[in-house]
């Protein structure tokens, strides 16, 4: 579903990413691990269009997406979350959710003034869907609170729920468990497993080996911008270069 080939990116002469090959199959959950500062997030930024690669090709669902605007990539169904969770704190929880659906009639000025009934009908549908998702993620009781009032873990949940509102074909999650307490971590893992069973494809960045081993069916290990190992969790766990990278 997603394949990344020969991506290179340097910042001021320092190579941040040099990913020769990375592939995610439909319905799979692929983990990207590596110590802090090895270019995992830069790789994510490049895939999701927030950074431009110097070289290389990214194909999503048969379409070349390298160099496309982030919004175009999201519209193709590749939706990301952020390492520092970006809940919009000055909007309410439900407004955060309602932002996400694609092709909203009311996002056009003339429709707001001239076709208010159609806009309202679509808003009602989206609000209903938002309620359902918020209920699943245990945030329904907070729906009219400003998102700034949520805890760190709840903001993560909101961000994932919001990404799902956009009806993605594939989710890119950047450290979805960082700063989240163990109870919520278990919850997020549970939702991810359920989503995977429903056919969602994931690419997840994580530096906690334990969680990623549990979650993924294929793992890429990054060190200093390069993929130094890949394989199923078992293989990666016993790979010497990985142990070197992690334990120094």
């Amino acid at each position: 579903m997603l394949s990344v080939k020969g991506i290179e990116k340097s910042f001021g002469g320092i190579k941040a990413v040099d990913a020769s090959f990375l592939e995610v199959k439909e319905g799979g959950t692929v983990g990207v691990i590596g110590p802090n500062g090895v270019g995992k997030t830069t790789l994510f930024n490049i895939i999701s269009g927030f950074d431009k690669p110097d070289n290389g090709a990214i194909v999503f669902n048969g379409e070349n997406i390298e160099g496309k605007m982030s919004s175009e990539i999201a519209r193709l169904g590749l939706v990301r979350t952020f390492q520092l969770s970006k809940a919009l704190t000055k909007l309410t929880v439900v407004e955060n959710m309602m932002l996400a659906p694609q092709v909203q009639q009311g996002e056009r000025i003339w429709n707001v003034w001239l076709r208010p009934r159609e806009v309202k009908r679509q808003e009602d549908e989206n609000r209903e869907r938002a309620r359902t998702l918020l209920e699943i993620f245990g945030l329904l009781s907070m729906k009219d609170e400003y998102a700034g009032a949520l805890s760190g873990g709840q903001k993560r949940l909101l961000e994932i729920a919001r990404a799902l509102m956009a009806e993605p074909k594939m989710l890119l999650l950047d450290e979805p468990f960082s700063g989240v307490n163990p109870t919520l971590t278990k919850k997020i893992l549970k939702y991810m497993t359920e989503l995977r069973d429903e056919g969602m494809t994931f690419l997840v960045i994580e530096h906690d080996m334990h969680i990623i081993m549990q979650l993924s069916d294929f793992i890429y290990v990054l060190n200093k911008g390069e993929v130094i190992a890949s394989g199923e969790p078992e293989e990666v766990r016993n790979n010497e270069r990985v142990l070197d990278a992690y334990l120094g």
């Binding site: 999701s48 927030f50 605007m69 982030s70 919004s71 175009e72 999201a74 519209r75 939706v79 990301r80 979350t81 952020f82 970006k86 919009l88 704190t89 000055k90 909007l91 407004e95 309602m98 932002l99 996400a100 694609q102 909203q104 009639q105 009311g106 996002e107 056009r108 000025i109 707001v112 806009v119 808003e123 919001r162 990404a163 956009a166």
Partner: peptide, 23 residues
């Protein structure tokens, strides 16, 4: 309206609407 919601999201952090497919 949804249009205004996108504006407010840009006001706070334009990476979010961009990541959700808004130009």
């Amino acid at each position: 309206s949804p249009w205004g919601r996108v504006l407010k999201s840009i006001r706070e952090d334009e990476d979010v609407p961009a990541s959700l497919g808004k130009n």
